[in-house]
Amino acid sequence: MRMLRPKVLLIEDDERLGAITKELLDDDYRVTWVTDGGSGRRELTTGAYDAAIIDRRLPDMDGLELVRMLRARGVSLPVLMLTALSSVEDIVTGLDDGANDYVTKPFQFKELDARLRVLLRGSAANQRAYAIGDWTFLAESEEMERFDGTRVRLTAAESALLRVLCASPDHVFSRQELLAAAFHPDDVLGTIDTYVSYIRQKTAKDVIVTVRGRGYRIGTPEE
């Protein structure tokens, strides 16, 4: 089962710095790069990201406006600010307004990468993500995310079933195995079919594959 790289939004108006930063981050992250605050606001509103790197001085707004917007909406997305404003007062203001960390320009990429990794480790957004067909299973938040960013909430039982299937992607599970691993042993075998149907209705039929006469296995990105 392929684990997805964390999804990071980079908001940086300096074309050269933005291109270099995206290129270097692309090895370990799925990076979307935009160059102004308006585009950044749209991405933060409609996209599902694990972290954001935001330049403080954007052409159309102060980057902190975006952070304030997130926090006002109760969004806990980790935010790393990039800034040439290196005074203690500027950094304290940014942290007080909701930024999680600051990197001052010019910076070493190793420092930026290290700080981003720390933010992701300490965030609930840094969760196990499994690619299944056109969907991604976000195990900790019990959600399915489609390739276009659409998210679907799962029940605890649906999530438990997917966790078992994702843990052994090459294994075909019998109904008895799935019942023992994800449900109460007193439940009937038909419980498995019911919850497979629920998950397919919320997502797609190929998220869980039926192996005739044997049981079920998780789908793959290639199917």
Rank of each mutant, 00 (worst) to 15 (best):
R2I: 15
M3Y: 12
R5K: 15
K7N: 12
V8P: 01
E12W: 03
E15D: 14
R16P: 02
L17S: 14
T21G: 01
E23D: 14
L25M: 13
D26N: 14
V31M: 07
V31S: 06
V34A: 04
V34T: 13
G38S: 11
G40W: 08
R41G: 03
E43R: 00
T45N: 14
T45E: 15
T46L: 14
A48P: 06
D50N: 15
D50T: 03
R56Y: 05
D60A: 04
D60L: 03
D62P: 01
L64S: 06
V67T: 06
M69G: 07
R71M: 02
V75P: 08
V75I: 12
P78R: 00
M81S: 03
L82M: 08
L82V: 07
T83S: 11
A84S: 15
S86Q: 10
S86A: 15
S86W: 05
S86M: 06
E89K: 09
D90Q: 12
L95M: 06
N100T: 04
D101F: 09
K105R: 15
F107I: 04
K110G: 07
K110F: 09
L112H: 08
A114L: 14
L116D: 00
R117F: 06
L119M: 10
L119W: 05
L120E: 02
R121H: 09
R121K: 12
S123L: 10
A125G: 07
R128L: 14
R128T: 04
A131F: 05
I132K: 03
D134N: 11
F137E: 01
L138F: 06
S141G: 08
S141Q: 12
S141D: 11
E145M: 15
G149F: 09
T150R: 13
V152Q: 09
R153N: 13
L154T: 01
A156H: 13
A157Q: 08
V164S: 02
V164H: 00
L165M: 05
S168T: 02
H171F: 13
V172R: 00
V172T: 07
F173L: 09
S174M: 08
S174A: 10
R175P: 03
R175V: 10
Q176L: 14
L179P: 00
H184P: 05
D186T: 11
D187I: 02
L189M: 13
L189V: 09
T191C: 12
T194H: 15
Y195R: 00
V196E: 02
S197P: 04
Y198K: 09
R200Q: 13
Q201Y: 09
T203S: 06
A204H: 12
I208A: 10
T210Y: 10
R212P: 01
R212Y: 05
R214H: 12
G215K: 04
R217T: 14
G219H: 01
T220H: 08
